[in-house]
């Protein structure tokens, strides 16, 4: 890996902040707004200093009303701007659901492509932060199930920077899901690297024996599981989906065909989930390469049990390794 253009280690929150700054500098149509994103800099400090740097017209607080925030962003996008708005927590975004489903997702289609909405809805999502009730949810399936939305989720700080730049540049609306447990994890980021295209998965770890397919907050967990598996003599690869919509069948299926065994890992409840869609797609497309049914390791189908029992809900290394163990090794 090249190290010549890496920044010092920065947190994911800082990587996103840098992406916002760079996008606002590059394009004065980019505006940032939401709840507490102004002088406070956001409850996770993602928008720290943007109002001071760019002024109140470019980064501002709104009344506390998520539907109004999304609705206003739609109008601003209709009138030539590129809003990047924040839903403070995943479970606080639901008042905006109608705006997202009925308008953000459909405007381009119902105007026959005459009105596209180049807007980004940033959503801190998933668990792992000990948040109390209504502060943690995995809402990706709602968005992914809605035609007309691009749905992206970074798992590394470099992708948080690069994918957000790509999302802001996109002519279509993007739901940008930020794994909130990783906001304060530090990594080096190459901000001069080419912006990754939306719609491409990436192989985080090569493996010959089995493939873990995952995204967002479960990527570090899957990598830890692969590391543990290696210690136990199994070579397990990890594919980071990155872009839920559009989905990169090519990269995911190539990895699965090479191993013949796959486990999908995600925090969201498994029933009717993104993990289920991935398992179905892999099964349809790789059936003759599979040595075992595709397994899913997901959250249970229960309301998010924050925070005292949260650890039982989130896929962990042991649960992943148990699923890998289950992939009918005795027959090969």
């Amino acid at each position: 890996m090249s190290t010549t253009t890496l920044t010092p280690k920065i947190t994911m929150a800082q990587a996103i902040n840098t992406a916002l700054r760079d996008a606002m500098t590059a394009d004065d149509r980019v505006v940032v707004f939401g709840e507490d994103v102004g002088p406070l800099g956001g409850v996770f400090r993602v928008t720290d200093g943007l109002t001071a740097s760019f002024g109140e017209d470019r980064c501002f607080d709104t009344p506390l009303a998520e539907s109004g925030i999304v609705g206003m962003a739609i109008g601003m996008a209709m009138n030539g701007m590129r809003p990047v708005i924040e839903m403070q927590f995943d479970a606080f975004a639901f008042p905006a659901f109608e705006q997202i489903v009925s308008h953000v997702a459909k405007m381009a289609n119902r105007t026959r492509g005459k009105v596209r909405l180049p807007m980004v809805i940033r959503v801190p999502y998933a668990g792992g932060v000990g948040g109390v009730e209504h502060h943690c949810d995995s809402s990706e399936a709602y968005y992914a199930h809605t035609p007309g939305l691009l749905v992206v989720t970074p798992a590394t700080n470099a992708d948080a920077y690069g994918l957000l730049r790509a999302a802001i540049d996109s002519p279509d609306p993007v739901i940008f899901l930020e794994p909130k447990k990783q906001y304060f994890s530090k990594e080096e980021v190459d901000v001069t690297a080419p912006v990754p295209p939306i719609g491409r998965a990436v192989v985080r770890r090569e493996g010959r024996d089995a493939t873990l397919i995952t995204y967002g907050p479960s990527v570090p967990v899957a990598l830890a599981a692969a590391e543990q598996a290696a210690a136990e003599g199994r070579d397990v690869g990890v594919v980071d989906v990155r872009s839920i919509v559009p989905f990169d069948d090519e990269t995911v299926c190539a990895a699965v065909r090479a191993t013949g065994r796959a486990v999908v890992v995600a925090e969201a409840p498994g029933f009717a989930s993104v993990a289920s869609e991935i398992a179905a797609r892999v099964t349809e497309r790789c059936f003759h390469h599979l040595e075992a049914p595709v397994r899913r390791v997901t959250g249970f189908d229960i309301p998010f049990p924050a925070p005292k029992l949260e650890r039982h809900q989130l896929p962990g290394v042991d649960r992943i390794l148990d699923a890998v163990d289950d992939l009918q090794w005795e027959e090969s």
């Binding site: 109004g68 739609i74 109008g75 601003m76 209709m78 030539g80 701007m81 705006q99 308008h103």
Partner: peptide, 10 residues
Amino acid sequence: LPHAVGVAHA
């Protein structure tokens, strides 16, 4: 109605 506000604010 919120879209109208957005167009106007922009």
